[in-house]
Simulated assay, not measured.
Amino acid sequence: MVRPPTAAQRRVIEGADPVTGRLRGGTEAQLAALVRQGLAFRHPRPPHDHFLTPAGHRIREAVPEEVVEEPSAADSGVFAARIGGEAEPPEDGPARVREVHSAWQGLLELRRMTNPDGATDRPCGWERTHLVQAAALALEAAGHRPAGPDGDSGGGDSDGYRVRATPQPEAVAVRQPDAEALAACARTLEKAGWQTGEHTDPRTRARYLLASPRRT
C-alpha cells in the first residue's frame, strides 16, 4: 500500500497547475519522494520539470473530510471551463479569452507529455477522468458560446451549448438547441480528438451529441 503524502508533500501537490499538473514548488527530496510514490513523474526532456500522475491528480482533487461546503471555481481561483447553465458564470471579456487559450494550450502540452507517442491530436488520461470539463474546454477554446443560467444569456447564449455527464462510461452529452450550432460543436470535438454521434432524446425528441475521447 502506498503511504499517503505528508502535509508538506500535499502542499506541493495542491500547488500544481490544475490543467497540466506541473509542480511549481517543492524541494528535490519532496519531488523525488512523490515520484517514488507514483504521484509525480520527471519529464525526460529539459528542463526536466515534474508533473502529477493521474494518482497525484486524484489526491489534489480529493475533498478533505472536514470540508462541508464546496467552494465555487471562482472562489478557489482554479480554472474551470464553461459547461453551460452555470448559476454564476465567469465574466466574459479579453481576460477570459486569454485564460481559456492558456488552459487549452496547457492541455495540448499535457497530451504531448503523457500520450505514449506524444500525440496532441487525441485526448490524454486526464481528459478521460474529467470528461465534462475536457469537452467543455475544447468547445469554449474554439469560440462556441455556452448557455447562460436557466437558458438565459447571462454571459452565455440562450441557444448555447451544455455539456453533461451520462451513465455511459467515457461519454458526455452535448446539447445545443440550434441544429447548425450542434453540428459545429460536433466538428470542433472531432477536430479535438473526440468521437461524436448525433442522437434523439426519446422523451423530448431534441437532438444531442454523445461524445467520447478517441483512443487511436
Rank of each mutant, 00 (worst) to 15 (best):
M1Y: 02
V2T: 13
V2Q: 10
P4R: 11
G15P: 00
G15F: 04
V19M: 10
V19L: 11
G21T: 03
R22C: 13
L23H: 02
R24Y: 03
R24L: 15
G26T: 04
T27N: 06
E28S: 12
E28R: 15
A33Q: 14
A33E: 13
V35C: 12
V35G: 01
R36D: 14
Q37F: 01
G38L: 08
L39I: 05
A40N: 10
F41T: 01
R42G: 00
H43Q: 11
H48L: 01
D49N: 13
F51T: 01
G56S: 07
H57N: 06
R58H: 14
A62D: 12
A62I: 01
E66Q: 13
V68S: 09
E69N: 07
E69S: 08
E69L: 12
P71Y: 09
P71T: 07
S72G: 15
A74L: 14
D75G: 08
F79G: 04
A80L: 11
R82I: 00
I83S: 11
G85S: 08
E86I: 02
E88M: 04
P89E: 08
E91K: 11
G93S: 10
A95W: 05
V97N: 03
V97T: 13
R98T: 02
R98G: 05
R98I: 00
E99M: 03
V100R: 12
H101D: 14
S102Y: 05
A103S: 07
Q105E: 14
G106I: 00
L107Q: 14
L107P: 00
L108M: 12
L110H: 12
R112W: 02
R112F: 02
M113F: 07
N115V: 11
P116V: 06
W126A: 11
E127S: 12
R128A: 12
R128C: 14
H130G: 03
H130I: 01
V132T: 14
Q133W: 11
L137M: 08
L137A: 07
A138G: 05
A138N: 05
A138L: 02
L139H: 06
L139A: 07
E140Y: 05
A142G: 06
G143K: 05
H144L: 15
P146I: 05
G151T: 03
D152W: 07
S153M: 02
G154M: 11
G155M: 05
G156C: 09
S158A: 11
Y161G: 04
R162Y: 01
V163G: 06
V163M: 08
R164F: 01
T166N: 06
P167N: 11
Q168A: 13
Q168D: 12
P169H: 05
E170R: 12
E170K: 07
A171I: 02
V172M: 09
R175E: 15
Q176M: 14
P177I: 06
P177D: 09
D178E: 15
A181V: 00
L182T: 00
A183E: 13
A186E: 13
T188E: 05
L189Q: 10
W194R: 07
W194P: 04
T196Y: 08
G197C: 05
H199Y: 14
P202F: 08
R207K: 14
R207D: 06
R207L: 13
Y208W: 09
A211E: 06
A211Y: 06
A211H: 07
P213G: 06
R214Q: 12
R214E: 10
R215C: 00
R215W: 02
T216G: 14
